[in-house]
Design a protein around this nucleic acid. Structure first.
Length: 376
RNA sequence: GGGGAGAUACCAAAGUGGCCAACUGGGGCAGACUGUAACUCUGCUGGCGCACGCCUUCGUAGGUUCGAAUCCUGCUCUCCCCA
């Protein structure tokens, strides 16, 4: 996987770049819609491609391993063919699920022991078998198996957890490097920085991670409940150390403002469930601010969802109509809201890229950050 | 015409002497959601102050009682069964 930097912002750490994969090019900064179980909830592949203009999407090892299972995915010829998506796919390793399914998990040196949330069956994820599963899934970008620490997290726990993540990384890379892709295109393996909100741990982790020569690096364990300023601080600390000439992926982030702040601090890739999940629950992100479409004030507002919006749904449907659909719990409401939000997120990062290239990123970002947090 | 049952907040429906401004569900109104166990979760939903409290409520008019949504009487209305 190749990464090329096309432009650097002179007033911030923002970069515009290009990632080259066997499934095509990705222009950075980029937002990657989350498609946990092989489905970006509520949005079909055609709309994802033509309307949202997604360049890469996520899948999840934990969920796909449990259902439909690796056998089905292998028989299908990999996840791309199974879900009919020809662009790049990144799979999360399941580290986050191990964290969020805390009740049923037990972390040991060998790996994470857990029970399926679907049928209670017992399984073990190790740095090695998670690589094997992701080989079968066939993701272009494979994530290391880490422990995503919760927040708050005491120093000792964060330190021990980080060291475990580092030991798992060593094993995961070894496994990755001695195995081959199954479907004839290249795969790559991203390590993940941990260390909770402790600067010295983040520095140590970033140095450890950077000592491995990889195609890209991820920042994990953030946006788990810590104040945003701490998150921004950690990004700055880590990006001082991660190689300049490789893409950086901030996992699980975030709000439109978070994304702009991340870009300004040198992050290239983002993913988040927010545009889809919050969309299903009636939250719309727009250039002018955030709309809670369920609010009664939109009941008889027949103006378009968003003037000159990024998606075809913005002109086609009114606020009153979408409010009606969401309030009535109609599936179409979730679909329209997801299309709108994802299109907005992709517009946002594309615009950021354009602004970095034409040299006006910082002033544009300042204006946008002000607007994006407004509650309409 | 005869017999029976019932009327509770926006709706449905508990409560049958004090722990009732009144269970619960729906609806309504707000909020939350950040590498998705999520078309989910939380709060509020008589009025005023909005902490403590105070005021007016359980078809309607009276009565019994220290005290009534709960007991008694009249009235109004609704439903069911038999003719």
């Amino acid at each position: 996987m190749e990464f090329e930097i096309n432009a650097l912002d002179s007033h911030s750490k923002a970069r515009a770049g290009t990632v080259e994969t066997d499934h095509g090019q990705i222009n950075t900064p980029i937002f990657m819609p989350v498609g946990t179980v092989g489905s970006v909830k509520g949005v079909n592949q055609r709309d994802l491609l033509n309307d949202v203009k997604a360049q890469i999407i996520l899948g999840n090892t934990y969920h796909l391993f449990l259902r439909p299972g690796v056998e089905t995915i292998e028989l299908a010829g990999g996840l791309h063919k199974f879900i009919n998506w020809d662009k790049p796919i990144l799979t999360d390793s399941g580290g986050y699920q191990v964290f969020s399914l805390a009740e049923n998990r037990k972390l040991k040196e060998d790996g994470a022991h857990f029970s399926s949330h679907i049928d209670g069956s017992k399984h073990i994820f190790t740095p090695e078998n998670v690589v094997n599963i992701q080989r079968i899934i066939g993701a272009d970008i494979i994530m290391a198996f880490d422990e995503c620490t919760p927040y708050p997290c005491d120093y000792t726990y964060a330190k021990n957890s980080m060291h475990l993540t580092h030991r798992w990384l060593e094993r995961g890379i070894k496994q990755f490097d001695k195995t081959e892709p199954l479907y004839g295109y290249k795969q790559t393996y991203f390590p993940i920085v941990q260390g909770s909100v402790y600067k010295d741990l983040r520095i140590e982790s970033a140095k450890t991670i950077a000592s491995y020569e990889r195609d890209g690096y991820a920042i994990g364990g953030l946006s788990v409940g810590e104040p945003v300023e701490e998150m921004y601080d950690m990004i700055e600390v880590v990006n001082e150390i991660l190689p300049q000439n490789k893409p950086r992926y901030l996992m699980g982030v975030g709000t439109p403002v978070n994304i702009l702040e991340g870009i300004a601090r040198g992050v290239d890739m983002f993913d988040c469930v927010m545009p889809t999940r919050n969309g299903r629950n009636g939250m719309l992100f727009t250039r002018e601010g955030i709309i809670n479409i369920k609010n009664v004030k939109w009941k008889n507002n027949f103006s378009p969802l968003e003037e000159n919006g990024a998606s075809f749904v913005d002109e086609k449907f009114s606020k009153a109509y979408l409010r009606h659909l969401i309030v009535s719990k109609e599936i179409l409401g979730a679909q329209i809201a997801s299309l709108h939000n994802l299109s907005f997120y992709l517009w946002l990062v594309t615009e950021a890229r354009n602004k970095i290239i034409d040299g006006s990123f910082s002033s544009w970002k300042k204006e946008m950050v002000k607007k994006l947090a407004v509650r309409l």
